[in-house]
């Protein structure tokens, strides 16, 4: 039954290709732009990462925390690669509470690269109270915590539309064609020229969405570049060694299996 076994192999492959999404039936297919980090040789576009960080700090960080990141990560290899001076300057713009000092008092000081990204709210309750009951999720792992990852983030940012006439939305709820269920509590975050890029790039909504998506993908997976690079080397190595092992096996077995 060689055909049957091939059929099973095929089914196995098909199974592993079923997108695990079942909730996304009613919403539209996600946008899938060409990201710099896609593919076997994927790398982050440094300029895009730096612009993405700017979009995060100037727009997203008003509501969303990124508590797993430290300012030092911004200068780390494979990331936005700000220089150490730039990173120090970035960190010093934020104020953190430290202490207690020798008198047992808490005090404020400016952040250092070793500090965590400053969160906009002291706790979840405060965040909910300020956002009509909705909790803006921490974005440290966002790109791996959503079906579709980067495509999902990018699509949501561009998915805001006027709601169709037959759908009535409550106050504080917005229509987004890519969100499962189509309603979202986050108001449209990006508007044209919401930020002013220092490198002269035009701050269109698409551009900002693209940059911040790149930034968030890096934040979720800061070793992506290293992983892909190491992966490629490992694959080449294994291909060579498996080929050698194959010939060793053939040679060994030729002693008892004379050519037909």
């Amino acid at each position: 039954m060689p055909n049957m076994s091939k059929l099973i192999l095929l089914l196995f492959l098909v199974f592993f290709n079923i997108s695990p999404s079942i909730s996304a039936e009613d919403s539209e297919k996600l946008l899938n732009p060409k990201f710099s980090f896609d593919g076997i040789f994927g790398k982050f576009d440094r300029a895009s990462l730096q612009r993405g960080y700017q979009v995060y700090t100037e727009v997203c960080s008003a509501c969303h925390s990124m508590s797993l990141l430290n300012y030092r990560n911004l200068s780390q290899q494979g990331g936005p690669e700000f220089t150490e001076e730039e990173t120090k300057a970035i960190a010093s713009k934020f104020e953190v509470e430290d202490g207690p000092n020798q008198n047992g008092e808490m005090f404020k000081r400016s952040s250092k690269p070793s500090d965590h990204f400053k969160s906009p709210f002291p706790n979840e309750q405060a965040a909910r109270a300020a956002n009509g009951g909705a909790y803006p999720p921490d974005m440290s792992t966002l790109a791996k915590a959503r079906e579709g990852g980067p495509s999902y983030i990018y699509s949501i940012l561009l998915g805001y539309e006027k709601s169709p006439k037959n759908i009535k939305l409550e106050d504080g709820v917005y229509y987004n064609k890519f969100k499962p269920g189509n309603s979202i509590k986050m108001p449209k975050p990006l508007n044209k020229d919401a930020v002013k890029y220092s490198d002269g790039t035009e701050a269109s909504v698409e551009q900002m969405a693209f940059d911040v998506t790149t930034f968030l993908t890096w934040a979720s997976d800061p070793h992506l570049e290293e992983r892909k690079k190491t992966g490629f080397k490992t694959i080449i190595f294994l291909l060579i060694v498996s080929a050698l092992a194959y010939f060793v096996k053939k040679k060994t077995w030729s002693r008892i299996e004379p050519k037909m």
Binding site: I40, I235, L238, L239, S242, A245, K249
Partner: peptide, 29 residues
């Protein structure tokens, strides 16, 4: 010699998953 070859091929497929789609078999939630 035969098992070594099989192991390396298995390892090759495993490395492809681990290095390029590490979260594919898991759940985003």
């Amino acid at each position: 010699s035969k098992d070594l070859f099989a192991m390396l091929v298995f390892l090759l497929i495993f490395v492809l998953f681990m290095m390029y789609i590490p979260n594919y078999l898991g759940h985003p939630d």
